[in-house]
Write a protein that binds this DNA or RNA. Structure first.
Length: 400
RNA sequence: GGGGAGAUACUCAAGCGGCCAACGAGGACAGACUGUAACUCUGUUGUUUUUUAACUUCGCAGGUUCGAAUCCUGCUCUCCCCA
């Protein structure tokens, strides 16, 4: 059981802490409190988050108490780094809304009925300045400067605002408030999580164990998976999308995805890796991974469908009827069923400027009924079942 | 508090009165080739009117000029040195 709990975990602090906590819980006949923080500004969950969430799920299955901490207070302060200084603090309503979205997505992996949700504004709002100073006095600047990104910015002479330094401390104080036994997070959270240990100790509590999961790389194969880098597979992505995205990742990512994104058993993983090193086409392995992922977040039938679709559509280059995003002709702005190609594509592909779309068309990215059309001003007749491909991933079909 | 340097598009970074929507690099996107991989090659990378054009952009606000990212004034912010 312990080895399952430790699978894929990159860092456990202290080393034997997990065992001790489990034993203690057993002795006291109580649930462990397992904390996971969530920043309410970014509620789009992807496979990177799933790495941590699946670990939480294991604990939940063993009967422990998951506490989701919504960092609404810290989000109100706003992040001053870099150019983001104009970032608006979220309103209470937005925070609520985001938390709800987050929960919905969470339910793909863990049982949200059994999860406890808390907002850190509940206690952080109430602290007096005296109390704040007292908390701050527990931490030294030298400690804070150990954090990698503070250190980097400091040595590079880029600004660090005071309240940024306070962030990790507040996060640590959250652990005090909720009496966390374990705090989970990605390896990037290591510093913040250890802050929790330290503060709990000064508040004479048994310090939490820190468990950090590795950060899954994004589809670009370079950076961590992150929405802003546009390299994610979202938990709520459609099956065909998941399949296509998985197939488009660089081969160098295969092992990592196998380990972190699939739910194969350890021995199955080994077997698949052996196939790879025996020279099997990595593409086949990627299909395996894709199917496994879709099975997790949708179901097996969908996974089969997605594969069949992919093979037919992209490998055999046959256009299939299914799985184009249907667009009602009535919903488009038009003139008597006629529209220019740019205008059509702008409406289909939202959040792109007209100029950008126009360039796309001119570079040959748009096909109508599988025929390239390079003229942005071609007049398109809006007919039922007209298929429009924009780039590699966006497919639409008009419906009367 | 005193002295010095600086703020340019996603990032880095040129430009220092007209030839600037702004060199170059990275990134990103698209195309060809492929296994929707990598490599390589090509193109694009402010917005808008069907575009040898107009409009908005070089920290913010004013000013000088026929004309400003470039000069002047004030402001904001950052970095460095000294106290």
């Amino acid at each position: 059981m312990i080895s399952n709990l430790k699978e894929n975990v990159e860092i456990i602090l202290p080393e034997n802490g997990l065992e001790e906590k489990l034993e203690q819980a057993k002795k006291d006949n109580r649930k462990l409190i397992i904390k996971l923080g969530f920043d309410p500004t970014a509620p789009d969950l992807h496979l990177g988050h799933a790495v941590v969430l699946k670990k939480l799920k294991q604990f939940q299955d063993l009967g422990h108490q998951i506490v989701i901490l919504v960092g609404d207070f810290t989000a109100q302060i706003g992040d001053p780094t870099g150019k983001n200084k104009s970032r608006k603090p979220l309103s209470a309503a937005e925070v609520k809304q985001n938390a709800q979205t987050y929960l919905n997505q969470l339910s793909k992996i863990i049982d949200t009925d059994k999860v406890k949700i808390v907002f850190n504004s509940e206690w952080l709002d109430k602290l007096s300045f005296t109390e704040v100073i007292q908390i701050l006095s527990k931490v030294t600047v030298a400690q804070l400067m150990h954090r990698k990104d503070f250190n980097k910015r400091f040595t590079e002479n880029s600004p660090i605002a005071m309240h940024e330094l306070v962030y990790p401390i507040l996060q640590g104080f959250d652990s005090v408030e909720i009496k966390a036994d374990i705090e989970m997070g990605g390896t990037d959270q290591l510093f913040n999580c250890t802050m929790g240990r330290q503060l709990q100790e000064t508040f004479e509590m048994n310090p939490q164990v820190v468990m950090c999961m590795p950060l899954l790389k994004g589809l670009d194969g370079k950076e961590k998976m992150s929405k802003s880098l546009n390299n994610i597979i979202g938990l709520t992505d459609a099956p065909n999308d998941m399949f296509g995205k998985t197939m488009s990742m660089p081969d160098s990512l295969i092992e990592e995805f196998l380990d972190l994104a699939t739910d194969f058993s350890v021995s199955e993983k080994e077997a698949v890796k052996a196939r790879l090193s025996n020279g099997e086409n990595p593409m086949e392995i990627k299909k395996l991974i894709a199917k496994n992922i879709i099975t997790q977040y949708h179901n097996e039938a969908e996974a089969q469908n997605a594969e069949a679709f992919f093979i037919n559509q992209f490998q055999n280059k046959k256009f299939e009827e299914k799985s184009f995003e249907s667009v009602l002709i009535n919903s488009l702005q038009q003139e008597n069923g006629i529209i220019s190609l740019v205008d059509l594509c702008v409406q289909l592909k939202k959040e792109q400027s007209k100029s950008a779309v126009r360039r796309l068309i001119e570079s040959g990215a748009v096909k109508i009924n599988n025929e390239k059309n390079l003229d942005p001003f071609a007049e398109i007749e809006l007919k039922n079942e007209t298929k429009i491909k924009i780039g590699k991933r966006d497919f639409f079909e008009l419906k009367a």
